[in-house]
Design a protein around this nucleic acid. Structure first.
Lengths: 192, 192
DNA sequence: ACCTGAACACCGTTCAAGT
DNA sequence: ACCTGAACACCGTTCAAGT
């Protein structure tokens, strides 16, 4: 029931429709099955029709990356250390829900998209309030983001790390360990 | 000059030869060009001949991962904090030389291979010497490894992180920032 | 056991049409 | 401008041979 359109007929595609279909496939079937052909199929169009709305698969995945960050909630606290802690934990939780996307995400360093910018500004304000110098603010932001994305990536695939392996770690333990390391890092950064 | 062998003739392949050819392609041409067909071509055999020595492409890449860690040098210091610092910096440098491999590496969490085991044991001994409880040792090891692999992954692809972007960061600045964050983390862990 | 030839079931992307 | 049909240049992997 897909191909009753001739060469001239429009399917009414938009950039948003393509992204939406891609997002649905990612969530329901995982990154490995996110192919241009699968997206096209879900939309009932020929594979190459997508290229009228999206430059490439890479551009599509980039857009998906920033979309994910829209779910990160802003901190309720104004207290710097607690505020940063909140943002990182919210980020961790959101990223973990899209673990498939993370390896590429880290390698490309998290989309200079609008949502990434928004969170960066919030973090910088809090770190500055904590008394860090302008230089240190950037360094601390990068350390925190790398740690958080890294831990989410690592947690997303349940494989132990280091010796005394064998048993996969329960999710709540992983989550607790993430917070422990985050606190170590925050203590080192804020000096308290 | 590749196909002068009939169906019966052996090419003298070994598992080590396949890994070696794969490693060479990875270093010289990058991950994107590391295909089973390219490896076979470099060895002068048909693509499917590899499957007599390697179970799958995934198994091949796993083996490559652990190979990389063989280059990490053991710490010269017995002092715990400085020793851990040395191991992480050596790991960072080695990983950075194989940045292409890192995204997959983090997602699978760094090969339970022999080299990964060796480094894990060294780290645990040092962290224990630093006065950490058995539980904390594992948590600290994971935090340090995630941070280090994460930073190397991130550094390997020169894209800025957060606001005030645009200019790519010079390698020595990235390196200094990595050490700064590492020290924050170590300070938080050891409490000094 | 180790290799080849041929094939299967895919990919992302481009190009020349049609409306 | 937006879509289709057909094709290009690839993938990883399997299967049935041959020695």
């Amino acid at each position: 029931m897909a191909n009753r359109r001739g060469p001239g007929q429009r399917a009414g595609l938009t950039n948003a429709a393509v992204l939406g279909a891609a997002r649905a496939i990612l969530v329901e079937r995982g990154l490995a099955e996110l192919t241009m052909r699968a997206v096209a199929d879900a939309l009932g169009v020929a594979p190459n029709a997508l290229y009228s709305h999206v430059a490439s698969k890479r551009a599509l995945v980039d857009a998906l990356h920033d979309d994910v960050l829209a779910e990160v909630t802003e901190p309720a606290t104004a207290e710097p250390k607690a505020g940063v802690r909140e943002v990182m934990i919210s980020s961790y939780e959101v990223l973990l829900r899209h673990a498939d996307l993370l390896p590429i995400y880290l390698a490309r360093q998290g989309s200079r998209g609008p949502n990434a910018q928004r969170l960066g500004v919030i973090m910088d304000a809090l770190l500055s309030l904590a008394g860090l110098s302008p230089d240190s603010v950037g360094e601390a932001r990068r350390a925190l983001i790398v740690y958080t994305i890294g831990y989410a990536t690592f947690s997303g695939s349940q494989v132990p790390l280091g010796p005394n392996d064998g048993a996969p770690m329960p999710p709540d333990v992983v989550r607790r360990d993430f917070e422990r390391g985050l606190d170590w890092l925050l203590t080192g950064i804020t000096g308290s």
